[in-house]
């Protein structure tokens, strides 16, 4: 069982950590970077305000988006609970209907699939 622990918990963590550290080290030793890194650090030093310049103007849009988000989340939660209890019926087709509904909610509202076909930026 140590094997299991090694392969699935310790190893991914160690490997992931090693990759991150290695990548970080490599970006450090990459030639011609010192100046850029310094500039980035300087930019960071300048205080970033908590809100951008258009914060106030955009408040209605934020509120609308938050409402949509909550409604979608509630919808997903409801569907998940329905799914959980309907599993006892043993109907795979019914499950798939629910899955598709959930997937459509996520793709349309969270992933903005419509944006792929949008040619004008609507920001």
């Amino acid at each position: 069982m140590e094997h299991l622990f090694l392969v699935f918990i310790a190893l991914p963590l160690v490997v992931g950590g090693a990759v991150l550290v290695g990548a970080w080290l490599l970006t450090k030793i990459m030639p011609g970077d010192a100046a850029a890194a310094k500039a980035a650090a300087a930019a960071q030093a300048a205080a970033i305000p908590a809100h951008g310049p258009d914060y106030a103007r955009l408040t209605p849009r934020r509120k609308a988006a938050l409402r949509t988000g909550i409604v979608v989340l509630l919808g997903l939660a409801l569907l998940t609970i329905v799914e959980f209890f309907l599993a006892a019926l043993g109907s795979t087709a019914l499950m798939f209907v629910i899955i598709i509904l959930k997937a459509a909610l996520i793709m349309y509202f969270f992933m903005h699939i419509a944006a792929v076909w949008r040619t004008e930026e609507a920001h």
Binding site: I48, P49, A50, H51, G52, P53, D54, Y55, L58, T59, R61, R62, A65, L66, G69, I70, V72, L73, L76, A77, T80, I106, F109, F110, H123
Partner: peptide, 19 residues
């Protein structure tokens, strides 16, 4: 699912100047 909701919130926030 809840994490997805917060991810959506983060995106909306940055798109509307709420850092």
């Amino acid at each position: 699912l809840l994490s997805s909701f917060f991810m959506n919130r983060a995106e909306v926030a940055i798109a509307n100047d709420d850092r």
